[in-house]
């Protein structure tokens, strides 16, 4: 099975919620009810920009039980962007029609946890919006620690504080405030889980801080939506069909295959779900494993690659396709 069934939605509302962040609200094109979802879920939004096809994942932010509309927030990534967030900001307005996937959850709160500590940086707040909604409805114990550059840059600070009160803690970089993670983690009850979402350096910092505090791996969770990192062009050889496909510098292997009409399996397109795992038959270059799915042993083994995120530095690679 490759890909996922899509549904058409219309943009019902666009709001600038922070300096570079817009909130979009989607309704079904025929106003049919949308699926309910679980806290931490995301959808993929399909964008046709010129001859390029992009599918970007965005966390759902509304109430998981609201079937009338879905909401996402998009940060304009500026020059670093591969085009998805730029397209959403510049080409999508009220009335625009888009295709979206069904909700998928790769970042669920652990229902066995005694307490949930949520750590967000910037746009990393988005998965926690629906998660807090769910945890609050379940009367689960949680607290949010949210780092923003400034109140102008941080989305939803006021809303969250008014809705969840003292469970929400905002830290402003422009005022020299840092998330005091050592102190926060130092006094949590047994059975607490920590979840972090934000830029990669922040995720690494939070996970490492927790580990140094003696928190077990099993209690630590993170999610990062990163676009496939660009690199040098290379050639993919397909063992079964004998075809050779050129992967451009800004493309992932998966995108190159799709451009040439090769059917390949995928789901999250962020290196997390494992659906696009592909066998490597030969490789004369070095694989940059940019996924979060393969184990260290599997990476060293060199027999598998997640084609949505990973690429090779030079040379060519032969895949079991």
């Amino acid at each position: 099975m490759s890909g996922f069934p899509l549904r058409r939605v219309r943009v019902a509302e666009v709001e600038q919620v922070a300096a570079r962040i817009k909130r979009f609200r989607f309704v079904d094109i025929d106003n049919a009810p949308l699926s309910q979802f679980s806290g931490g879920s995301h959808i993929s939004v399909v964008m046709h920009s010129g001859d390029r096809l992009m599918r970007n994942p965005y966390s759902l932010m509304g109430s998981p039980t609201d079937t009338s509309s879905y909401q996402i927030s998009v940060l304009h990534c500026g020059a670093d962007s591969r085009g998805g967030s730029k397209f959403m900001h510049e080409n999508v307005a009220v009335g625009s029609e888009l295709e979206i996937s069904q909700p998928l959850n790769l970042f669920p709160p652990v229902r066995l946890a005694k307490k949930h500590v949520l750590v967000a940086g910037g746009i990393g707040i988005t998965p926690f919006m629906s998660m807090m909604n769910e945890l609050d409805a379940l009367r689960s114990d949680f607290e949010l620690h949210y780092g923003v550059r400034s109140l102008e840059d941080g989305a939803y600070c006021k809303y969250l504080q008014s809705r969840y009160g003292s469970r929400v803690n905002v830290y402003r970089q422009d005022q020299g405030q840092m998330i005091p993670l050592d102190a926060i983690l130092g006094e949590q009850r047994l059975g607490t889980h920590m979840y972090v979402c934000g830029p990669k350096p922040m995720i690494d910092w939070a996970l490492q801080t927790a580990e140094l505090q003696g928190w077990p791996q099993e209690n630590l969770h993170s999610e990062q939506f990163s676009a496939p990192p660009p690199g040098k062009p290379f050639v993919v050889k397909l063992a079964k069909s004998g075809r050779e496909i050129a992967v451009k510098g800004h493309q992932s292997i998966l995108e190159a295959l799709e451009e040439h009409g090769v059917d390949a399996s995928f789901l999250c397109r962020g290196g997390a779900c494992g659906q696009c795992e592909t066998g490597v038959i030969a490789c004369d270059g070095y694989i940059d494993h940019n996924d979060h799915f393969l184990s260290e042993a599997e990476r060293v083994g060199g027999k598998k690659i997640m084609i949505c995120m990973s690429r090779i530095q030079t040379g060519s690679i032969t895949l079991d396709l």
């Binding site: 005694k114 059975g191 077990p216 791996q217 099993e218 209690n219």
Partner: peptide, 8 residues
């Protein structure tokens, strides 16, 4: 019962 995962 205390939320300690068996793997930890």
């Amino acid at each position: 019962d205390y939320g300690i995962d068996h793997l930890s």
